[in-house]
Write a protein that binds this DNA or RNA. Sequence first.
RNA 1: GGCCCAUUCGUCUAACGGUUAGGACGCGGCCCUCUCAAGGCCGAAAUACGGGUUCGAUUCCCGUAUGGGCUACCA
Length: 482
Amino acid sequence: MTETRPVPRVRFAPSPTGSLHVGSVRTALDNLLFARREKGVFILRIEDTDVERSKAELSDQILSSMKWMGLDYDEGPFYQSRRYDLYRAAAEKLLAEGNAYRAFETPEELDRDRKAAEAQGRAYRYSGAGRAIPPDESDRRARAGERHVVRLKMPAETIVVQDLIRGPVEFPADALDDFVLVRSDGHPLYHFSVCVDDAEMKITHVIRGDDHLANTPKHVALFRALGAPIPQFAHLGMILGTDRKKLSKRHGAASVEEWRDAGVLPEALFNYLALLGWAPGKDREIMSREEMEKEFSLDRVGASPSVFDPEKLLWMNAQYIARMPGEELLARASASSATASPPQEMPPRDVALPAIELHRPRVRTTIELARALSAYARDPGQYDADGLRKQVRPETPAQLEKLVERYASQTDWSAGALEAALRETAESLGVAAGKLIHPVRLALTGVTVGAPLFDVLALLGKETSLRRLRRFLETIAREVRT
RNA sequence: GGCCCAUUCGUCUAACGGUUAGGACGCGGCCCUCUCAAGGCCGAAAUACGGGUUCGAUUCCCGUAUGGGCUACCA
């Protein structure tokens, strides 16, 4: 007889206050990986109870970013703004059972108390005055329409949070306040709606950012008051910028959208973020989604914060570009070509596919790839100034003329034949092959660096190659005259 | 201020009391080479500090320092 374990249920609960932050993505991804590994359920819940800050478009942006990242949820999205009945009922129950009470102070009064405490250099705590109001008086004042909040009666005992990553964490009772559950306008506050929802959705594991650890004793007390089982907690280290401050806009790209627009593949971003905090062991780094889903374990997730390193992300992106099938990469590069600024023109696929093989080891993003491919779609608009200075000598035009002549009569336009022809020409001219190769690359692509020249020539074809060479000769002739 | 968390190369991390402290990014060098990359090989680079516990501490405990988080009728 095998013991039947309850199905693990986890959730990702972003608040729609902006674009999807990479720190949030890491949290979402750890939840997802955990759910897959444990054969559990991954739920998406949008925490939009803050009416001033939440907007519908921002929720949609989060949804589309999650889709792009492949963060597929099993249930949801659930919107807290549509679950107010639940919170209201829970508040009533807490009040009726004496686990919560109404408090009638105004925000101004509380603010004054807080300032006073601060001025005296002591820690502010709510006075607890509301606790002393008899229930019938409380009910009467509420019925009379007097503005009030609902506060939780915090127990006077040390609360121990059992954290899967950090072990037991103790919070002495006197550090905890009777915090507000429901605002005077009837809106549930974050801590309250979270716990009501986690209880109602039967969440078994709460995997979230470290910034919530200090709030967790409140949640434990709330779950108890609600009569709900207490989920397991796992608090992940924060993701920091290079200055060790919480990663934000000022550090450059901090959101999924920005990295997408920079030409980073979702698979690479997923892989990179998964490895921030989680060490799969055996020094493995490039892992497929399947491997990650099979092996993810909170036992191997660290507690310390980690710095987001764009360089390593870009390296990993290059690794994914190196391994991705050509067809797939072409689709990704095409998408990037449209969002690049300026937008890049793409060559036809019979040219683009072999061009991708030429350029994939020399780009780190699909934007860079799109730019490289665009060179096959249109003639260079200008030539690199340093390149002109370095590669074009007084004798260069005459030498190139010779080569163009030779190429014009070339029938075998394969890389091998083109190389042989160029080397013969160089030899007959009595110069090193490089004296021809570098100016030709500049003529064909506008720059001095890039894929092996003869492959480029072969791919461009005879007509285009000769046209570009002749145009280059005209240009440098003009340069010489002026 | 109070409470809480964290601390191994510059960065991500491995080493669950005994290792020449391992790997990766980045950096430097060499090889390959028509350039630039990619790739291969080599190299420099770390246990924050101070006390304990122990035959032995990166590892366990305490303190200090530093960084971070929380301390709202924000999430």
